[in-house]
Amino acid sequence: MNPPDASSQIVMRAKGLVKRYGQVTALDGADFEVRAGEILAVIGDNGAGKSSLIKCLSGATIPDEGEIHLDGQITRFKSPIDARRAGIETVYQDLAVAPAMSIAENLFLGREIRRRGFWGSVFDMIDKKKMLEESIARMNDLKVGIRSMTQAVETLSGGQRQCVAVARAAAFAQHVVIMDEPTAALGVKEGNMVLELIRRVRDKGLPVVLISHNMPHVFEVADRIHIARLGKRVAVVNPKKISMSDTVAVMTGALSVDQLPAELLAH
């Protein structure tokens, strides 16, 4: 997959988002854009407005001001369910899976395939065989090496569970996959497994928004890095050019964006 250039289509864009919680202004006119086929990392110190931004994009909170455009259309999400219906899937840090249920059931939870005809329409019966086949196909597609789709999610390692959550998001997202600290709870090997999967999701053409504190992970997979600071987007940088320490310096405010050479910024 080619790294995205400025001509890549913008899939989701936000302009001038403001979110206040009482006296605290979490978002102070933040902008955002993610393009087709890229991994956009969103980084920022605590209180930079990173999670408020993501909550607005995923429908978990409603911004006080500002607009969100999805595929050129203005959208207003009232809940995460709304965002999901619009084709935005979010993977949460705390492993949002039902542990005692099988992988196949988790992949299709809330979107079960009904049986055809009478049994499906009248008795709401689900087509377990079809769901199993689809699960196998989708996991193979993303090269997730889990042997049996009928095993309970709790028998999997943390990394494998996160892979199930990522695969579910990738399978159903029409527009964007948002991942909130997907590797935070994982060890080195497991973290790499999830990063590899995130790349494969991107390579299938879905834009990925990756929120992470882990700089090595961000630099390993991101195509562009959105730096949040004091409720705004201060810069979008190119991880191929900029150093990790400069990025952290911009993030913490130790280095002003004006001091950065222009070629370090992403278009």
Binding site: R85, Y92, A98, P99, A100, E105, L109, G110, D124, I126
Partner: peptide, 24 residues
């Protein structure tokens, strides 16, 4: 065992937050 509603009963008991986030 066989209906979506029945499986949702298990899902709610398993992880209510995750179940809610899937749109159930």
């Amino acid at each position: 065992r066989e209906t979506a509603a029945g499986r949702h009963v298990y899902a709610v008991g398993n992880n209510p937050e995750a179940t809610r986030l899937t749109g159930i």
